[in-house]
Design a protein around this nucleic acid. Structure first.
Lengths: 336, 336
DNA sequence: TTGTAGGCGTTATCAC
DNA sequence: GTGATAACGCCTACAA
């Protein structure tokens, strides 16, 4: 026996239209009818068919998030799971679901967006890992699709985005080191073509500018955001340096490991403030990104975007958290 | 102007039924008609509406995977991304998509399965992180839902599953250590209530049995699969031991770190063979799980389950990979 | 081989 | 307030 809206209508002695109204909280239903219908719904344990609703409303309630294949790090990244958790929480509060998918290894990244759009599988996208010149964004714009980017375009392009203040964060961290008289700050940056890297590099430069210092480009290294990358870049750097600023906490941890092996003791600052940052030895000075807030805000913006045609553009503040690793002789801390 | 099957039909001068037949590769369409229709489809760039198809066919093509909230480690777990990648690849080959979702923090884990089932959002589930007594499985069985479990029931219960030979793997690793005359093997196991932990404990016990040795239960510790957990359990263990067998490579790495600090040099074996295992110092002896194959096989089984009512039950072989960490005096390796 | 038409389950528009 | 009824876009008997 199939259970659908008309079964309920029949049992309740009303029309399907009325049941639908009850279901959708329409005000134009008498209290009495509403209660009668509700009772039947509960007794039958009826739940509306989501697919039929989608067909009718042309909305699936699914938000697509395609995880770039090029960056396995997002999964290594303790950070990412927090982002997802918060976004999921916010979305499900309004009846949306995250449709997470991994990019296909050897396919043009745009294809999966095309498929999802063509088949009308999702209502909107969350774009991760914004590139300097991002073909996914280009594509979605030509298709007039809804999306929110995590990250901020570097060329002032008008796209809906949420980002943390990467430039400001780098500025704060580097200024702190410069104030401490560090003058040769090794900057372990992320991949060169990612907008996040570009913003942080701008902060690095700006801080030097403020102090009237010139920047030697050879101190800016591009790697991936992993611990391993931080370790290797530090270890293989040829030349003197008196501080390290890393674009992720994992990289900073790698740098600390390398420094220890090199028996070199200079201030280190990371980026993110992942949970481990407070637990390493030495504890990590770092730029805290409000990752929960990012997850929440992205979800919130997507919903706003879908339900009221808003065009979100937000930069969230970051904060420099001072711990042991940025202090000279931080190795001493281990003796406690 | 809306683009749907009847627009195409009109343009091509045929009925919607014929277009549908072409779309679905029905043999009963003349070559000529098919070509004519195809041409129109291409010119119009028509793509069938997935939601309408779902409504008609009662299949969404979505496979639900709910990531347990209790175990943030799945995201720390470098392993998990490989699993997802392979599963996704296999699924999309047959037109399915993975619908990944994070479990809601403070909600009964079963609820999200209920929601997905009620609303008919997914065709089947992949269950991760099987518990000894798993209410999700119970629930899905009562609802007669399709699912495949990654992991093997410990009580012989009949459920569709894919698992690696956890017991055999532990058996091999522990036997190897016993053969080396180790007699006090510290076993850093995963959470006690997870089936994977129970299988591995069985392997540990079995190996001892084979050597006619009794097992001291105090040598079996339960933690989480993280590096930190391995480190702490090793460091805080009170009592002598002459080898370590860890239930994950991350834990093994934590154990190695602890041993180094304790200036203790005993063989260590891990589990998984994550990419880093070959790159640590010392390199890690470990039980290799064919993770790509697990991802592929789970996806394959889900499809088989959906399309031909099969009931998959498969245990995939594992292999002991001998590297440096299991050899006594492995610290020497660092001098090269 | 092809076309007609009903139905999948819901919601929105229009009457009453 | 409530009830018919027509879509939404597709597939599949059944008929031709």
């Amino acid at each position: 026996m199939k259970l659908n809206i008309s079964t309920v209508a029949k049992k309740a002695g009303v029309s399907t239209a009325t049941v639908s109204r009850v279901l959708n909280g329409s005000p134009s239903v008498s209290k009495k009818t509403r209660e009668k219908v509700m009772k039947v719904i509960e007794k039958l344990e009826y739940v509306p068919n989501h697919v039929a609703r989608s067909l009718r409303s042309k909305k699936t309630g699914l938000i697509g998030t395609i995880i770039p294949h090029s960056t396995d790090y997002v999964f290594n990244f303790p950070y990412f799971s927090i982002f997802l958790r918060e976004a999921t929480k916010r979305l499900s509060g309004d009846g949306y679901q995250l449709l997470l998918t991994i990019e296909e290894p050897d396919e043009n990244p745009v294809e999966i967006y095309r498929t999802f759009l063509d088949r009308k599988i999702v209502d909107a996208f969350i774009i991760l890992d914004l590139k300097e010149k991002d073909e996914r964004v280009e594509f979605l714009k030509t298709r007039d699709a809804k999306f929110v980017v995590v990250g901020r375009a570097v060329n002032g392009e008008e796209i809906p985005f949420i980002d943390t203040d990467n430039m400001g964060g780098a500025f704060k961290a580097v200024s702190y080191l410069l104030k401490k008289k560090c003058r040769k700050i090794l900057f372990l940056n992320g991949p060169a073509n990612q907008s996040v890297s570009i913003w942080r590099a701008r902060g690095y430069l700006d801080a030097h500018l403020k102090y009237g210092l010139e920047v030697d480009d050879s101190f800016i290294l591009n790697g991936s955001f992993t611990e391993d990358s931080g370790y290797k870049m530090t270890k293989s750097f040829e030349g003197e340096f008196d501080a390290v600023f890393a674009a992720s906490d994992l990289m900073a941890m790698g740098a600390l490991k390398a420094l220890k092996e090199m028996e070199k003791d200079v201030p280190v600052i990371g980026f993110d403030d992942i949970p481990q940052a407070a637990m390493t030895s030495p504890t990590l000075t770092t730029v805290r990104q409000p990752i929960e807030k990012v997850g929440y805000t992205v979800a919130d913006s997507i919903i706003a975007c879908l339900e009221s045609e808003e065009f979100p553009r937000k930069v969230l503040d970051v904060e420099l958290i001072i711990r042991e690793s940025s202090e000279v002789n931080h190795e001493d801390s281990k003796k406690w």
